[in-house]
């Protein structure tokens, strides 16, 4: 079996022209999304082109430091995106997300290459970088949903938490339900994906491998692997980020400090 048919720039332009439909819908329904759509299109072209160009020399260089640096940049951007998507924020949210994605995303990606796929060396960029990308892309959605839910509940449920604290609850006891609910919310997208995968949708990684000439059964096995890694990374990442964000809403005396939560405009 051969590799995929090479694509030329005109073919990408042809596909991008379909976005005119999105633009027309936005104008017709007065959604005001034209500018956002244009920026998103240009960004995706630029970012993917950059990624494609940079990965070639990285694959050739075979330097673990270079691979590590790229992973750090990916995790940093993912943490930034996760925080930006939350409708409320609290001091220290970015470092919390960074740590959560490093432990959840970075940890599971390394576990996947080193212990499960058993790539030699474990940091082989052809495996580690795409796997980390898949995990981070999905994991940050879970983290941002979980953070949004936990801060919303802490903000809106401050009376209940304050009442429980007044009766001697520890911060953990007073907000325990919040953490559980937030992690559950963060897990929903990946659980939904796992439910419909293979029936309703063929996910990106499997599609790419099939187009690349991998036998479908092998592509399916890789897809299973990545789904399980994403699920684990989302659970770990969401739990860590939610717990750290809840910690920020209490002070050293375990007092609830709702004034530390700020709502984003819009």
């Amino acid at each position: 079996m051969t590799g995929p048919i090479p694509l030329a720039p005109w073919q990408i332009a042809a596909a991008a022209s379909l976005l005119v439909v999105n633009g027309l819908i936005s104008v017709w329904l007065r959604l005001g999304l034209e500018r956002t759509l244009a920026v998103a299109t240009v960004r995706s072209v630029a970012q993917l082109a950059f990624l494609g160009l940079i990965l070639e020399p990285v694959f050739r260089a075979g330097s673990p430091w270079l691979v590590g640096a790229i992973c750090v940049v990916m995790i940093t951007f993912a943490a930034h995106a996760a925080v930006q998507r939350s409708s409320r924020t609290v001091a220290g949210l970015f470092p919390s997300s960074l740590l959560a994605l490093a432990i959840g995303g970075g940890g599971t990606a390394v576990l996947g290459t080193a212990a499960i796929v058993q790539v030699e060396p474990w940091w082989e960029p052809r495996y580690l970088i795409p796997m980390l990308g898949m995990i981070l892309g999905n994991g940050l959605t879970g983290i941002s949903l979980g953070l949004d839910r936990s801060l919303q509940q802490m903000d809106e449920g401050r009376d209940r938490i304050d009442a429980l604290l007044a009766f001697g609850a520890t911060p953990w006891e007073a907000s325990g339900g919040v953490a559980g609910e937030a992690v559950r919310t963060g897990m929903i997208p990946i659980l939904n994906s796992m439910t419909v995968v293979g029936i309703v949708m063929i996910p990106g990684m499997m599609t790419g491998q099939i187009l690349g000439g991998t036998p479908p059964v092998q592509a399916a096995l890789y897809q299973m692997l990545i789904l399980f890694l994403i699920a684990a990374a989302t659970a770990i990442g969401t739990l860590v980020s939610v717990l750290l964000s809840l910690r920020s809403v209490f002070d050293e005396a375990g007092r609830l400090r709702p004034e530390r939560i700020t709502r984003r405009a819009g």
Binding site: D159, R160, A163, A166, G168, P171, G254
Partner: peptide, 20 residues
């Protein structure tokens, strides 16, 4: 320990919130 303190020195609000 602050939680133990709050258990031993208990505050009751004038207008207890209408909780869920």
């Amino acid at each position: 320990g602050w939680s133990r303190w709050r258990r031993r020195v208990c505050y009751v609000a004038q207008d207890p919130p209408a909780l869920a």
